[in-house]
Amino acid sequence: MSNAFKVGQRVLVKDGDPPGHIRTPFFLRGKSGVVETIHGEFRNPEELAYGKEGLPKKPLYLVRFLQTEVWVDYRGAPGDTVSADIYEHWLDAE
């Protein structure tokens, strides 16, 4: 399986609130960031949580966000960032 996104590419985290065991934090849904690292492929936790195999594996990315774009009233320095691991099926190209 090849990766849909490459390092440095801008991506948009999908929005929405589907039921189940989701590892995409709410505070990053609908936010745009930059792919920082491609971690490889892992079994899908959204299926593993329900006793399924979690296959096919899903590519996992470390995605970096500017704090000022995540929080409207961010109080730190303008260059501060927050990064999280997000599975490919939660990302769109921007």
Binding site: R23, T24, P25, H39, P45, G76
Partner: peptide, 27 residues
């Protein structure tokens, strides 16, 4: 993060980038 670090007694200059890393998955 800067407020929380200050509560831990850690003061960082604004010129230092603070990067919070949220371990949400397999890493």
């Amino acid at each position: 993060p800067r407020g929380v670090l200050t509560e831990f007694g850690t003061q960082l200059d604004d010129a230092v980038e603070i990067k919070v890393v949220d371990s949400t998955a397999d890493m």
